[in-house]
Design a binder for these strands. Structure first.
Lengths: 208, 208
DNA sequence: GATCATCATTCAAACGTTTGATCAGTTATA
DNA sequence: TATAACTGATCAAACGTTTGAATGATGATC
């Protein structure tokens, strides 16, 4: 009988191919079809392992999904460091935009999980996604407050409207890609121009 | 034997309670859990009709889903009229933002279908969602071109970056609501302020 | 050094349940 | 009475999970 989920190595000493392969194969599948859109047989088949390994290592399909999301969202923690950096307040916003772009470029599946959980939340939403997002928004709000107290930013703007506007400009660009691929050039080569334009609009909007 | 889908009244002369109830019940369920997250029994139960009515009226679960999406996205067609209106170019953008806000307020499920299809596209994506989105983006691009040729807008901005920035600001605000409800005030009473701030940032960004 | 017990791991097979779809049959309508 | 609307029962297929056996490596015991 299966009692619990077996040990999880913190240090990657033991490779655990089976476990590793399952997560690697699950990422693109869950990202494309969602938790309910993929079967355990499809997951096991793509990973090249026996389907009972999902229950063995993750306690079930939802456990594997949670493991995937945990791995995907770990990278969001890096954003918190931005506020502590010793650069101009406005440059912190640009760092956020740049970090967001490079995150989506280096991990093409993150945004799918992000919006999938926002739209059709699973059990993971409250435990993993919501806290991660709130940390980022809080960081942006604090950064805005810094710029306000330094008398760099206009004081007639609502902080949340402002930072969500910035986050919206950059996130929505990537979200819309599947629908506007033929209409809009989403090539990575254009990222620098995109960042400049977004920061341009934002800067004119918030500066005194 | 079931041969095909029965007649679909264009004019709502016959009420067709069964069909109507199914769509009405399916909207919140599909919006919350996605196509694969709801069973036909759950749908029929919520509508208070027999399970086989789904196949009878819509040819199956996916048919009901398509009917829901068609109904939800029909309202997007209204946006096309904006470009033809005889108002200032910048005011057209504000009309777009206002229409978007009021659309999400009057139909709280639309955004879920919108982003759900963008993230985990079903068969409906290519036929219903993609064309609808592209029409809106095209309308915004044309509006921007008008402002450019009138020498009202800066000519050093990329049109697509600009209009997607505007669309992102307003859409992302609603998308993020489930995650930031405790952090950000999303009350409809604040909508007017939100619109003003977004248009404020956008106007400063694009005007010469 | 050989034997044994123990352990995590992996497997094929089967589990019971739920799925979406369909059927023949019944009621309602016109 | 003919057609449309609807019902309860039933279907095969797919679902996620569990089972018990097989495997191979590890360490202790004699």
């Amino acid at each position: 009988m299966m009692i619990g989920i077996p040990f999880v190595e913190e240090n990657p000493v033991a490779d655990n191919d089976c476990r590793k392969n399952l997560i690697a194969a699950a990422v693109p599948l869950f990202a494309a079809k969602g938790l309910n859109g993929v079967s355990v047989r499809e997951l096991a088949g793509a990973a090249g392992v026996n389907l009972s390994m999902i229950s063995y290592y993750f306690g079930g399909k939802e456990g594997l999904y949670a493991a995937v999301l945990t791995e995907q969202f770990a990278i969001l923690g890096k954003l918190e460091e931005i506020e502590q950096m010793e650069v101009d307040t406005l440059q912190k916003f640009e760092l956020y935009v740049r970090a967001t772009v490079s995150r989506y470029r280096s991990n093409p599946y993150l945004l799918r999980f992000y919006t999938s959980e926002l739209t059709n939340p699973t059990a993971c939403f409250e435990t993993i996604i919501k806290p991660a997002i709130r940390k980022v928004v809080q960081m942006l709000l604090d950064t805005f407050a810094d710029g306000l107290s330094d008398r760099k930013f206009r004081d007639d703007l609502n902080p949340t409207d402002t930072v969500l506007a910035l986050a919206g400009m950059i996130n929505f660009y990537f979200l819309l890609e599947p629908a506007t691929a033929e209409l809009v050039d989403h090539a990575p080569e254009r990222d620098e121009q995109l960042i400049r334009h977004i920061m341009d609009i934002f800067t004119r909007g918030v500066l005194r």
